[in-house]
Amino acid sequence: MNTPLFEGELIRLTPPDPDRDAETESMWTHDVEYMRMLSADPVRPLSPALIKKKYEEAEKEKATHRYHFAIRTRADDRLVGFVRLDHIEWNNGASQVTLGVGDPNDRGRGFGAEALKLILRYAFAELNLHRVTADTHEYNERALRFLERAGFVVEVRRRQAVHRDGKRWDVIKLGLLREEYKP
């Protein structure tokens, strides 16, 4: 019962704090590579004001269908990314995870892996969900490896569903079942 849910060794999950973080998050949205890894929406830099507005809109959604955390380093309480569970279907025990580490210099340092570990424990041991889905794009091999290392299995390839730089790529959907999850 005393398992710390929000504390890793390198990072912790905290509530989002748009007043404090909007400047940093706005900076991340200017990184085309990052934005294209994260989403199929057209890349578009967002001002700090727009970021704050998005958080306000998200707060209107039912709180029990969306769990959004900021990822901060334990060493110096610096914002390095976000992780979120949403599209929660309580009747089916299904959910979707999205994770981003904003600054390229912070990638490959284990922050994302720890955050994913924490959010999966949250999904299976606190929310008692049955499965977690994650989407990525064919060109994002790093995300694919990252998810597979955490136990996710490729379940769906939506062929040619993303069109970028003149080429069509598959959207890859992965899933992790409760019984496959290794704490």
């Binding site: 025990g93 390839r157 569903a161 079942l177």
Partner: peptide, 24 residues
């Protein structure tokens, strides 16, 4: 058929897949 999301539904006491399909 482009894939199956395993056990994504829980109905009548059992789990069922959601099947994704597409046409180009």
């Amino acid at each position: 058929v482009e894939g199956r999301q395993r056990q994504a539904l829980n109905r009548d006491g059992r789990r069922w897949d959601v099947i994704y399909m597409g046409i180009l």
